[in-house]
Computed example of a mutant assay.
Amino acid sequence: MTYMIHGATGAQGAPVVAALAAAGKPVTALTRDAGAVVDEARVLAVDYSSPADLTDAYRGAEGVFVHLPVAPEEDRLAFARNVVAAVREARPARVVFSTSGAIVSADGDGDGGRDDSAESAVSVLVAGLADSGVSHAVIEPRFYLENLLLPNVIAGVREEGVLRYSLPSGFRTSWASHLDIADVATELFERTDITGVVSVGQYPAVSGEELAEAFSTRLGRPVTYEATDPHVFFAPLAPMLGEQATATIADMYRAVGTQPDHSITAERSAQKLLGITPRTAGQWLADLAL
């Protein structure tokens, strides 16, 4: 039996493929591109819009890794319902779903960044998995360190010694890498005793100034932090993501920034539940050989 990984050629799915393959697990890369080549994985063309294709892919699977793509919420809702329908019909041995930053746990920090309304795609998928009777776990990160590699961010670091990001100065959040998500997903496929939400991110949370310090240490020269208005910061992504999705992301960041912090809690952390400590910013930069 194999492990089915959605978005296997993308930023989130590719590290999961690599981690499972390194552990000697058989992997099938689920992608919309039938011609894609994925090292150490069989490629299967599957679209979230087809419940039949999803059901065929999931049937007999040892595990399924799911995350919803960036798309209009109406589409994401349809994708979530299709995944739930396929899980109920195919009944894979285990499903691990990453919320990609949406907060669904009851101990979330206020309303900023939450996605727990009855009709949000993430919550529909979480509730559907809970009702399916299939073994599952939900990975709940906050922000990804890979966001700091966006061209408009890393260029400022390299050319000006300034780390610009759309969070207030001094604001603390529990950053995690896609590599950390892969580590946790791989462990959760084995640890079927762990169900529900597993929060992934640095604890205690860190500020933008501390991230800039990590860049400074890695590069051997001063790097400072500069807060940027979210709508200004994300504007360059509109041609790729679309105006609506870009505005939604910017609004989320603005809401998050009004909270005291954006930290995970220790109780449901990967550190406590799985004994996995996410990379520090310095460790992440070293892993990238940046």
Rank of each mutant, 00 (worst) to 15 (best):
G156T: 05
R81W: 03
I154A: 07
D115I: 00
G170Y: 13
D115R: 02
G156V: 11
G112K: 01
A93V: 11
A106S: 07
A121V: 07
S98D: 02
R88A: 15
A121D: 07
L77N: 12
V153A: 12
R91H: 08
S105D: 10
Y165I: 12
G108P: 07
R76G: 05
A80M: 04
N82W: 04
G101I: 05
G112R: 09
F143Y: 12
A93M: 03
F143P: 01
V124F: 12
L150H: 03
A106N: 09
A118F: 13
P151C: 12
S132K: 15
A86Q: 04
A130S: 12
P151W: 10
V70Q: 08
Y165H: 15
V126S: 14
A80C: 08
V122S: 05
G156R: 05
R172Y: 08
V84G: 10
P141T: 04
P72F: 03
G101W: 04
V96Y: 05
A121E: 12
S169C: 12
L68Q: 14
N82F: 09
A86P: 07
Y165G: 06
R81P: 05
E89L: 10
L148P: 00
R164A: 13
S177L: 02
L163T: 09
I181P: 10
I139K: 07
A102Y: 03
A127I: 11
L148D: 00
S117F: 01
E119Y: 11
S105R: 04
A86D: 08
A78R: 15
E73P: 02
D180T: 08
Y144W: 14
R81S: 09
D115M: 09
L163K: 14
V153R: 01
R142T: 10
D111C: 02
V84A: 14
S123R: 14
